[in-house]
């Protein structure tokens, strides 16, 4: 059973970034990540500036460097892939520590590692400074349909319960000596997934009843709406403004 997933990344702290309205943070993070993604890989100095910006962000937001590093594990498989590229790639070969590798492959490797790490770090700071319901409310304010964010809200609310329940089913199976090693022994697991689906569905019906009992008529009340001030938009715009400026200069320079 995987774990990491069921726990949101939120770090309970009070920082200027925590207090920004969620929609400006989401918009800022996405714009910044895109400008990083567009930045030409040859402009190493640009990535150095991005890294400094991220470090400042981590500092101001108080999410902590240790937290950032442990959460970056998610991108490791891709970084592993990136490290292999220089060895398999074609093109002009150069010697690094006595090993012949592809120059172009080295660049490709650097490109994926740099962009994936900066992108993931930005996401981690965003998720680390914004509570999940606020993230959803922020998406809402950015014109993501309510239908979409409402469903996401219910998903997050009930995910923990379902994961716990699956854990209990697994414990019950293990306690009766079930230790499958091959795919054809997986039937009890699949059957429990089926049972889990039925239970989830029935819970959905009961939750709906509980909502209707309190006057629900198809529209979720918007209880977390917060309209940002111009000042807050400007604060949040600092990061993407930096990103876009650096990216443009890098594009022109290379």
């Amino acid at each position: 059973m995987g774990t990491g997933h069921a726990h949101a990344l939120y770090v309970h702290e009070h920082s200027p970034i925590h207090h920004l309205p969620p929609q400006v943070k989401i918009a800022g993070a996405v714009a910044f990540i895109f400008s990083v993604a567009i930045t030409p890989r040859e402009a190493m100095w640009a990535f150095a500036i991005y890294a400094v910006a991220i470090a400042a962000l981590v500092r101001i937001s108080k999410v902590g460097f240790g937290f950032l590093l442990t959460r970056l594990i998610g991108v490791l498989p891709f970084i592993a892939f990136a490290f292999l590229i220089p060895f398999i790639a074609s093109g002009e070969q150069v010697d690094v520590l006595g090993i012949s590798v592809s120059r172009d492959g080295l660049w490709a490797s650097w490109n994926i590692i740099a962009k994936a790490t900066i992108g993931a770090s930005t996401s981690i700071v965003l998720a680390g400074t914004t509570e999940v319901p606020d993230l959803l409310a922020g998406m809402n304010r950015l014109r993501v349909p309510t239908l979409f964010t409402s469903i996401a809200g219910f998903m997050i609310r009930y995910l923990g319960l379902i994961v716990d329940e699956i854990g209990r089913m697994r414990t019950a199976m293990t306690s009766r000596g079930y230790d499958p090693r091959w795919l054809w022994q997986a039937k009890p697991i699949a059957a429990s997934a089926g049972a889990m689906f039925i239970r989830s569905y029935e819970r959905g019906e009961r939750v709906h009843d509980a909502m209707v009992a309190r006057g629900y008529q198809g529209e979720m009340p918007e209880l977390r709406r917060r309209d940002p001030s111009v000042q807050e938009w400007l604060t949040a715009a600092a990061l993407p403004a930096l990103g876009i400026t650096v990216m443009v200069i890098a594009m022109v320079a290379t």
Partner: peptide, 24 residues
């Protein structure tokens, strides 16, 4: 809406759900 949300939680959980493939 609640049904879809809880079904989404089910799919999310199902993706965390390991099953045996071969030799453990």
């Amino acid at each position: 809406i609640p049904l879809a949300g809880i079904a989404a939680a089910f799919i999310f959980a199902a993706q965390m759900f390991n099953f045996p493939v071969a030799a453990g």
